[in-house]
Simulated assay, not measured.
Amino acid sequence: MGKAVMKSVLPGFGITLGFSVLYLSLLFLLPVAGLILFTLQMSWADFWVAISHPQVVASYKLSFAASFIGATINAVFGTLVAWVLVRYQFLGKKVVDALVDLPFALPTAVAGIALVTLYSTTGWVGQYLYLWGIKVAYSEIGVVIALTYIGLPFVVRTVQPVLADFSKELEEASASLGASRFTTIKRVILPAVLPALLTGYALAFARAVGEYGSVIFISGNLPYRTEITPLLIVSKAEQYDYNGAAAIGVVMLAAAFILLLIINSLQWWASKRG
Score class of each variant (00 low, 15 high):
G2T: 09
G14M: 10
I15M: 10
V21D: 09
S25C: 08
F28W: 06
P31F: 10
A33M: 09
A50N: 00
I51Q: 02
H53Q: 08
H53D: 12
V57H: 03
Y60M: 05
Y60A: 00
K61N: 11
K61P: 10
T72K: 01
T79S: 03
L80Y: 04
W83S: 12
V86M: 04
V86E: 03
Q89I: 05
Q89P: 04
L91G: 14
D101Y: 01
F104Y: 15
L106S: 07
G112H: 08
L115H: 03
V116P: 09
T117K: 09
T122I: 10
G126R: 00
G126D: 04
G133S: 08
I134P: 01
I134Q: 04
E140P: 11
R157M: 12
V159F: 07
F166E: 10
E171V: 15
A173V: 06
S176N: 11
A179E: 11
T183I: 14
L190C: 11
L190Y: 15
A192D: 13
A204D: 06
R207K: 01
A208F: 03
E211M: 02
G220N: 03
N221M: 12
P223L: 05
Y224S: 05
I228V: 15
S235P: 05
D241K: 07
A245D: 02
A246H: 00
A247N: 02
G249L: 02
G249D: 01
V250M: 01
I258V: 11
A270W: 13
G274C: 12
